Amino acid sequence: MASGWAPEGAVQDQIDASLEDAVAEARARMPQGDSLTHCEECDKPIPEARRQAVPGVRLCIQCQAEQEKEYRPSGGINRRGSKDSQLR
């Protein structure tokens, strides 16, 4: 595929880099360490089954759901810099 001045495989490199960034961001948001017995936000007990299923859990299901509603993933990085994407 002709790509102008870009080297062969540059588009795939951009896709791979975007995917690696998304995976790194998701891993950074995953809980780590020991699970808590009570929620950090509301202090309700966290069920044993949840603590075993999600190692490092810090929030009860309700608080986790609220936190995920508020989470807005970043718009990403425009690595290509095409004219179409610059006009948006």
Rank of each mutant, 00 (worst) to 15 (best):
S18Y: 07
E8S: 15
R51N: 06
M1P: 13
A2S: 15
Q64D: 12
V11N: 08
S3F: 15
L36D: 06
S74I: 09
S35P: 02
E66A: 08
R88S: 12
W5P: 15
D84M: 15
E48C: 07
R80A: 12
W5A: 15
E20Q: 10
C42R: 05
R58H: 01
S74A: 14
Q86M: 12
E8W: 13
N78H: 08
A65D: 14
G81M: 04
E66I: 08
G75C: 02
Q52M: 04
I15F: 11
Y71A: 15
V57E: 00
R72T: 14
E66R: 11
E8F: 14
L36F: 07
M30G: 01
P45W: 00
Q86I: 08
E40C: 07
Q62T: 13
S85D: 12
C60P: 00
S74R: 12
L19T: 13
D16A: 14
E48F: 14
A6W: 10
P31I: 01
A65H: 11
C42Y: 05
E40L: 12
G4V: 01
R79F: 03
G4A: 10
Y71N: 14
E41W: 01
G76Q: 07
E66Q: 10
M30T: 04
D21R: 11
L19E: 12
C63H: 00
D34E: 15
I77Q: 07
D43Q: 14
A10K: 07
I15H: 13
R88K: 13
A17Y: 04
S3W: 15
Q67A: 12
P47Q: 02
K69Q: 11
A28L: 04
M30Y: 03
S82I: 03
A53G: 10
A10T: 09
E41T: 05
D34Y: 11
S74K: 12
D34G: 09
M30D: 07
T37Q: 08
I15M: 13
E40A: 10
R80D: 09
R80C: 09
A24V: 04
G4T: 03
A28D: 06
R51W: 02
E40N: 08
P73F: 02
R50V: 07
L36A: 05
P7Y: 02
M1E: 14
Q14K: 11
R80S: 13
D84S: 15
M1A: 13
A6D: 13
C60R: 01
S82E: 07
G33Q: 03
L59H: 01
A65P: 01
E20F: 05
A6Q: 12
P47V: 04
A65F: 07
P45K: 01
Q52P: 02
Q12V: 10
E48L: 14
N78S: 06
G33P: 01
A22C: 09
C63Y: 01
R27L: 12
E41K: 08
P73W: 04
G9I: 04
E40R: 09
L19R: 11
R58P: 00
N78F: 08
E41H: 03
Q62H: 06
R72C: 11
E8D: 15
E8I: 13
P7C: 03
T37P: 05
V23S: 02
D13H: 10
A53W: 10
G33F: 00
G56N: 05
G4P: 04
I15Y: 12
R80E: 12
A10L: 06
P47D: 07
Q62N: 08
E20T: 00
D21G: 06
E40P: 00
N78K: 06
E66D: 11
A49Q: 06
P55T: 04
P47S: 03
